[in-house]
Amino acid sequence: MDNHNSGHSEHSEHNDGHIAEAHHPSYGINVLVWIGLIALTSITVSVSGINLGSLALTVALIIATVKTMFVINFFMHLKFDNKVFKIFVGVCMLIFIVVLVLTFFDLTFRYE
C-alpha cells in the first residue's frame, strides 16, 4: 500500500487512454468490415474456380492477408490501440516471414 499513490497516478493515465479508446464504440463500422470480409470470401472462392496456374496460391494468400488485416485492425481494435501493440504484431509477422523465407532457401536448394 506504500506506493498506492504512485500506482494510482500511473494507472489513471492508462485509464484515460482506455476511456479515450472506448469513447466511440460503434456497431456500424464492424458490420461494414464483416460485409467486406464476406465479399472477400466469395471473391477467393470464385477466383479459385479460374485456372490461374501458379498465380492461384499468390492470389489466395493476398486475399487471406487482406482479410486478416481487416480482422486485426477493426475486430481486434489494433488500429485504435496503443502503438506498442502495433509494433508487437509487426515484429511477430516479420519473424514468421523470415523463418518461412529461410525454410524455402533450404527447400529450394536441397531438391535441386
Partner: peptide
C-alpha cells in the same frame, strides 16, 4: 470480454488461412 474476443478473432484468422490452403487448391 475483449480478451476473449481477441482469442476468438485469432482462431478466426487461422481459419482464414486454413480455408484457401486446404479447400481451394485446384
Amino acid at each position: 470480454l475483449e480478451n476473449a474476443g481477441l482469442y476468438w478473432h485469432l482462431v478466426d484468422i487461422i481459419w482464414i488461412f486454413l480455408f484457401p490452403l486446404f479447400y481451394l487448391i485446384h
